[in-house]
Design a protein around this nucleic acid. Structure first.
Lengths: 190, 190
DNA sequence: CTATTCTTTAAACGTTCGTACCAGAAATTT
DNA sequence: AAATTTCTGGTACGAACGTTTAAAGAATAG
């Protein structure tokens, strides 16, 4: 038993660079050669580390989801209630600097919806991860059924608002709606 | 001045068939030849009517948006207030039979977000059309700023919930969140 | 040092892509 | 009937695609 060890760090380094590329240049027409050229490696370096195009796409979806979750998860954990967590999440995700990242997010999300078997892992986690975080933000005193309902509504509303913001760029209008939503959260009616 | 007239009906007939194809077979890898084979026409028939691949994609986005809007617009007009309109829209769009259509919707939406110049028309209308319908549903007595805010929130929330439903298929949970949202709409707090 | 495995690049393969060109059939006006 | 334009299908072309193969360099274990 000998030989050069597998370089997992190198794979992740390449993957992050590919995700960066997809953020900037789009996801729908991604192909080996332009990506490799942009990263200044040979196409076969990418093929070697990712195996096939299909595997690369799955890896991109996984890494992007991971990145987005990581950027907000710890922030959510520090909040004392759902309203605060939702506001923190909104303020984080609606930053102009992250717009391109979320445009890619919705692009890959839509693609995953049309190929659910190929991207099953993404679809399994893209809601569930946030559900877990937003359930936790409500503490142990909220009934599970209510916590689920509230978490679901927060995820849906924030994603829908983000979609609108990325579409229209009408920040004043979208922020107004976000404030309205976050205000109702702060004053639960039941 | 003579010659065979342009057959616009034929173009629309083909376009609808292409959209149907995209609903069933996905949008990301659409190409002339498989579509033409499925429609039992030559590839050149499609090229002749749509000009180029880019134009075809734009036409697909436009037609899909048009279809979805048409299926709901008149329904919304018949409602007497925003809560009723929102509920009608949700019941319409969350039908299992229309799931594939909305998976395509989110797929093309995501793609449009990463190529905003190419799909500017789609992006200009995909929010604005619904804004107009949901502003109208609130009647003339609601202040414009409030009507905008409420309409924005309804669009975002319903789209976010639909995204969740298509992702997880967890209808009970998503319906619960939808009911919660629609209930808050029925009892406006300010 | 040797053996082994991983990493990287270059070259080439067959396939599919979008598009252009051509010719015939169909539909309209004069 | 003649002229003109659209519609359709067959063929072909160059480009780009994903993938495979072969070979050289790098890093580990014995």
């Amino acid at each position: 038993m000998a030989g050069r060890p597998v370089d997992h760090r190198r794979r992740l380094e390449l993957l992050d660079a590919v995700v960066d590329y997809a953020v900037e240049n789009g996801f729908s027409e991604l192909s080996w050669r332009p990506v490799a050229a942009a990263l200044d490696v040979s196409t076969n370096t990418l093929v070697h580390h990712f195996g096939s195009k299909e595997h690369l796409l799955v890896a991109i979806l996984g890494r992007l989801r991971e990145r987005i979750l990581a950027a907000t998860a710890e922030l959510l954990g520090a909040q004392h209630d759902l309203a605060a967590a939702a506001r923190a999440a909104w303020e984080q995700t609606s930053q102009p600097a992250r717009a391109a990242e979320f445009r890619l997010f919705f692009a890959v999300y839509g693609r995953a919806l049309q190929a659910p078997e190929q991207f099953a892992d993404f679809l399994d986690r893209v809601v569930a991860d946030w559900m877990a975080a937003l359930r936790a933000a409500q503490g142990p005193d909220v009934a599970p059924a209510v916590a689920d309902r509230e978490a679901t509504l927060v995820i849906a509303t924030l994603r829908g608002l983000l979609l609108d913001l990325l579409t229209t760029g009408d920040r004043a209008r979208v922020e107004g709606a976000a404030d309205r939503f976050l205000a109702t959260l702060a004053r639960p009616e039941d």
